[in-house]
Computed example of a mutant assay.
Amino acid sequence: MATSIKRMSGVAALCLALISLGAGPVISADKSLTPDSKPGPAAPDAKPGSQSAKAAEDAKQTPYQTVRDVFEGSETVTGEVLAFPAGNPSVKAIEVTLAPGEETAWHQHGAPMFAYILQGELTVTYEEFGKKVYRAGDGLLEAMHVTHRGKNTGAEPVKVLTVFMLGEGDQATVLEKDPGDSREKVE
């Protein structure tokens, strides 16, 4: 996550920290960045007892009693490298609810999107990549430029908190044509 946070604007980093407070389990912000977005003193291979090792341990401290990592990475679920918008960044968060058996239209995302499964089970079919199942408590960076659709494959409604890191002119969701059943495969 440190790699992706280093590329993240202050607004997006703050958003992820705030979202974690309202979405159930709490995660802490990566403290390897200073307030002015310069790399912090964390040194993973520091010698025990050294000033660098102490700084790295201090950076791991959080103001929260309970922390559970939800997601860490710099690639989407289909391997796209995460890149945040350079111009006029903004954040949009929505909660998507699908009834059992309900599915989304085929679509792509015009900007990076973090998703957190609040409840239920969601199976997403990715064009040329197959299907992946996500359950309550899972966090992921959704595919951006790969056509996909989600389906509630559980017995209860699925609720997904989706957080888009938008830039000027970016669209959160772009509808796409059905890529055809011949491209669906199960992993």
Score class of each variant (00 low, 15 high):
123 T>Y: 10
64 Y>F: 15
81 V>L: 11
122 L>S: 13
48 P>Y: 06
61 Q>S: 09
129 F>D: 10
106 W>D: 14
79 G>V: 03
102 E>A: 15
113 M>K: 06
97 T>K: 10
49 G>S: 08
62 T>F: 04
94 I>L: 05
45 D>L: 10
109 H>R: 06
113 M>V: 13
61 Q>K: 15
115 A>C: 02
59 A>Q: 13
133 V>G: 02
100 P>V: 04
91 V>W: 01
79 G>R: 10
109 H>A: 04
64 Y>H: 12
107 H>T: 11
81 V>H: 11
57 E>R: 09
111 A>V: 00
85 P>H: 03
122 L>G: 03
126 Y>E: 06
101 G>P: 09
107 H>Q: 09
73 G>A: 12
126 Y>T: 06
121 E>P: 00
86 A>C: 04
58 D>E: 14
56 A>Q: 13
72 E>M: 05
90 S>T: 15
132 K>Y: 01
53 A>N: 11
104 T>N: 12
58 D>F: 03
101 G>F: 04
67 V>P: 00
121 E>H: 05
123 T>C: 11
102 E>G: 09
53 A>S: 12
51 Q>K: 15
133 V>I: 13
46 A>H: 07
76 T>I: 12
116 Y>L: 10
79 G>T: 06
96 V>W: 02
99 A>H: 06
64 Y>R: 01
128 E>M: 03
45 D>Y: 07
55 A>F: 01
86 A>E: 13
51 Q>M: 11
80 E>V: 06
63 P>K: 02
79 G>Q: 07
117 I>Q: 05
106 W>Q: 10
111 A>W: 00
44 P>H: 06
104 T>P: 07
121 E>L: 06
95 E>S: 11
63 P>R: 07
95 E>F: 04
114 F>D: 01
48 P>C: 09
107 H>L: 08
74 S>D: 15
131 K>V: 00
105 A>H: 08
81 V>N: 15
70 V>Q: 12
80 E>S: 03
96 V>S: 10
131 K>P: 00
102 E>D: 15
127 E>F: 00
72 E>A: 15
96 V>D: 03
105 A>G: 10
75 E>K: 15
48 P>A: 14
103 E>W: 08
121 E>C: 08
70 V>H: 07
108 Q>E: 10
57 E>W: 02
72 E>W: 04
130 G>P: 08
85 P>L: 09
125 T>N: 09
77 V>A: 15
122 L>F: 02
66 T>H: 10
51 Q>C: 02
96 V>C: 04
134 Y>R: 12
59 A>D: 13
94 I>H: 01
49 G>P: 15
134 Y>G: 07
62 T>R: 11
74 S>F: 04
93 A>S: 10
126 Y>Q: 06
120 G>P: 01
75 E>L: 09
100 P>C: 04
52 S>F: 04
83 A>P: 02
44 P>W: 07
108 Q>P: 09
62 T>Y: 02
63 P>D: 05
